[in-house]
Design a protein around this nucleic acid. Sequence first.
DNA 1: CGCCAACTTGATGGCTGTCAAGTCAGGTGG
DNA 2: CCACCTGACTTGACAGCCATCAAGTTGGCG
Lengths: 244, 244
Amino acid sequence: MNAPLSLSHLKTACSNCNLRELCLPVGLTHEEVESLDELVYTRKRIKRGESLFRAGDAFQSLYAIRSGFFKTRVATDDGRDQVSGFQMAGELLGIDGIGTDAHNCDAVALEDSEVCIIPYGKLEELARRFTPLQHHFHKVMSREIVRDHGVMLLLGSMRAEERLAAFLLNLSQRFTARGYSASEFILRMTREEIGSYLGLKLETVSRTFSKFQDEGLISVQQKHIRITDIPGLKRVMGQSGASC
Amino acid sequence: MNAPLSLSHLKTACSNCNLRELCLPVGLTHEEVESLDELVYTRKRIKRGESLFRAGDAFQSLYAIRSGFFKTRVATDDGRDQVSGFQMAGELLGIDGIGTDAHNCDAVALEDSEVCIIPYGKLEELARRFTPLQHHFHKVMSREIVRDHGVMLLLGSMRAEERLAAFLLNLSQRFTARGYSASEFILRMTREEIGSYLGLKLETVSRTFSKFQDEGLISVQQKHIRITDIPGLKRVMGQSGASC
DNA sequence: CGCCAACTTGATGGCTGTCAAGTCAGGTGG
DNA sequence: CCACCTGACTTGACAGCCATCAAGTTGGCG
């Protein structure tokens, strides 16, 4: 099922990957990227609804998303759980596992997806040899922390409309960075998953989408979203009473 | 003001530091710790109310707290801000700056404090030479991400009482790890700062403290907290309707 | 001693959760 | 091909938690 063939190896090589700009190899010379190829030698396909890893699984590898869409989900011992993020092509999964040698969240594919398996031991070894790789890996982790702080701010101080506006603008921006339309996309997650991520109930998400539509900011049809007024959404996000 | 004297160097050395178990040198051999001494050659004192760094400052160093207590604070462009964490002795400050080469939050001392300055370039260099240091540094960053996910879960799905109970238990546990009392301590932060961190208003924090006191869970007198019923607090935290 | 920031407590209102009913879209099987 | 079924979504009514506004208290510090 995931036997490494030499053909798949060829196809997997970082040096051929068009996600280079988003993934780990950023800033490496061509030569350095080629030696990265020894790092990533296996890909894995995950079908929609399946888990890449689950909380408690032994940590061994990081995963770079080659294609598809994931959610990560954390849980408390008393049965509560929450979506902690949505990840798309070029983003890294599994960083949470380094600290305890076990994964702390579930990573579930929201559509059929493919990931590159990055054995963590090898990554550390290469990071010791290639300063830019080390530096870039640290940057990726640091940015994840900064991103989480942004979500904490959102959860702690924004109202439902502001959260949803921020969410849509964030998705829009990430799609743009991948060459897709900034204003029109398909939501891979349900209202419930959006709500879980934003600390809202699914009804509130649905209601707020409808409100945005009434106000002419977006056009919603089930999972199909079209943002018709990006500046308007930004205004919704910033309306904390400080209009001057 | 922060001129490195040879005397202060001696006193700063990681090999003499009683926070070794909490800070970066965990898991290093005695020999390795000694070579760490070249890394940390300056300490800095921060008075209560002063900032160690501010959002936007160029990133150059990490800081290990030797003594004292800090809060970190993130802000949006529209004037909103939120406390993103409280840090005590043995914990690391500044990791958020690696990703963008600039700090993304303010670090403010909540009491007179002292930090060890860890030049980031040197840390990366040493991490390339000492595998355990590299590994430990990655773990520290990963744990910070996991911690943030926990806060996100708290902000997204817990009610005021649960948040405060979790907060008190977390403080209690961290004080315990440092050899202080698990049940009696002084809050270094104001109700407003607690509220900001937990996504609540200061009145709600105050009211909930009073409620806990009425219920015999804690005893509050201004900043002085005594937890009289730790299992009770844990029960408050877990009461999400799943009592079976 | 007096001032001020921090804190407590009360009254009221609004945002969002909860419960409920109905709609829509896609997939399956007859 | 169509009916049916199911999960996802929408919309409404109501309630509860927490924010807001307000007034008073406490404690530390000059």
